[in-house]
């Protein structure tokens, strides 16, 4: 699903965000990228989403080399990924259902399938009672759930979540991580970045990779 070999990322201002990154993610994996703010977690996730292009090394996502991918090929790849953004990126003035449906509208789905998949995913994240609620009036935790529902409604091969526990209390943060964990299966991998290491200490069936100053520092569980 993800294969990174010797990845470097340097921004145009000269900042070196990532150095010598080596990571492999397989279907069914639950991978936590941990590290303090500014360590390079989000930069790595941006590479996985095709928002940045590696300046050196080779990165393959779902069989596509990310060094030269663009246009319709990148669009097709992104449709196979379920992104959960740090600030959710929900469309204001729209309901939860409309936001989830928006991520499905350009897929090959009939109107009925489109609505069914959106409703099912909102039910799965526990928001069946808020289908028609405006996202503007939702709490942080609810917004996060809508964002997750939008990502998983597409039945993606890869779920990428950037700091999904930020701004949440411990109880709700654990619920969100459990929810994300529940989506991994034989054909789906989940990658989550977080700086809240205390929330994942007991997740022994997951892989954890620590990033510091743009480099992979240590591997706690499983091999990176």
């Amino acid at each position: 699903m993800i294969e990174a070999r010797g990845i470097h990322l340097k921004y145009p201002d000269g900042t070196s965000a990532l150095k010598e990154i080596e990571i492999r993610v397989e279907a069914g994996d639950m991978l936590y990228l941990i590290g303090p703010s500014g360590s390079g977690k989000t930069s790595l996730l941006k590479l996985f989403m095709g928002m940045e292009v590696p300046t050196a090394g080779e990165l393959i996502i779902l069989g596509e080399s990310m060094s030269y991918i663009k246009g319709p090929q990148l669009q097709r790849l992104r449709r196979r990924i379920g992104p959960v953004f740090q600030e959710f990126r929900l469309i204001k003035g729209r309901t939860a259902l409309e936001n989830v449906m928006m991520g499905l509208r350009f897929l090959e789905l009939s109107s009925k399938e489109l609505k069914e998949q959106a409703v099912n995913s909102l039910e799965r994240v526990g928001l069946s009672h808020k289908l028609n609620a405006l996202v503007d009036n939702m709490s942080w935790g609810e917004g996060q759930r809508v964002s997750i529902a939008r990502a998983v409604a597409r039945r993606p091969a890869l779920i990428l979540a950037d700091e999904p526990t930020g701004n949440l209390d411990r109880e709700n943060a654990i619920k969100i991580l459990d929810l994300l964990d529940s989506f991994r299966d034989a054909s789906t991998a989940v990658v989550v970045t977080t700086h809240a290491t205390h929330l994942i200490e007991d997740r022994f069936d997951s892989r954890i990779v620590e990033i510091s100053n743009g480099r992979i520092m240590e591997r706690a569980w499983g091999e990176a």
Binding site: R76, R78, F85, R89, M102, F106, R150
Partner: peptide, 16 residues
């Protein structure tokens, strides 16, 4: 622009 960026990140075609 924010909505457009989100749609692009979700893989929406430019025509959409």
């Amino acid at each position: 622009r924010e909505e457009i960026i989100t749609l692009r990140l979700l893989g929406a075609p430019e025509s959409f």
